[in-house]
């Protein structure tokens, strides 16, 4: 579970990375790890600490697919949509799952339980279709196994 916003804790995280060169991405990763997403307050604080404009921080946050500007569900399921998984039917399984959950890519179930996102390759390409649940990779997912995985995240 992510912590709620705490400015002094956030400053502590930022300060830890200030001595390294090019600290922006490590800071954003660490803030997201702690708070679950990059809030406006977080961007303000990073801008101030790195002496760059808020626009610059926003530009970075919005460029990278990994950074969220709103909290995700309690669990995040990333399903691979790249060619190797497509070649073994991954796209159909993913669409069936989304349909049964009533979601589009990137959306979260109404109870806040699960967010389903696309990912373009997990590097498990000889054992597809693949997905990652809360950072844990899963391979050889047929339609049934993918559904079971989505249910597993309670």
């Amino acid at each position: 579970m992510s912590a709620s916003w705490d400015a002094s804790r956030a400053q502590e995280i930022v300060n830890k990375y200030l001595p390294i060169k090019g600290p922006m991405l490590p800071i954003l990763h660490a803030l997201q790890e702690e708070f679950g997403f990059i809030s406006d307050e977080a961007m303000r604080l990073v801008a101030q600490s790195l002496n760059v404009t808020r626009a610059e921080v926003y530009g970075v946050v919005s460029f990278y697919h990994d950074f969220r500007q709103a909290p995700a569900g309690r669990h995040v399921l990333k399903i691979c949509r790249a060619e190797a998984c497509q070649s073994v039917g991954g796209e159909a399984h993913a669409n069936a799952l989304l349909q049964s959950l009533g979601l589009k890519w990137g959306e979260t179930t109404p109870d806040g339980r699960l967010t389903v996102e696309p990912v373009y390759c997990l590097g498990l390409c000889a054992c597809g279709p693949n997905a990652m649940l809360d950072g844990e990779p899963r391979a050889r997912l047929d339609a049934q196994a993918l559904h079971a995985l989505a249910e597993e995240a309670a």
Binding site: I20, H29, G59, F63, D66, Y120
Partner: peptide
């Protein structure tokens, strides 16, 4: 030596975009 983690942008595999990203910018 240090390992830095990307943030889900495929284009950062392009060498100059990667360098921008390492510097803390948009890729």
């Amino acid at each position: 030596l240090e390992l830095r983690v990307g943030a889900g942008a495929y284009v950062c595999g392009e060498e100059t975009a990667l360098l921008e990203s390492l510097e803390g910018k948009r890729g």
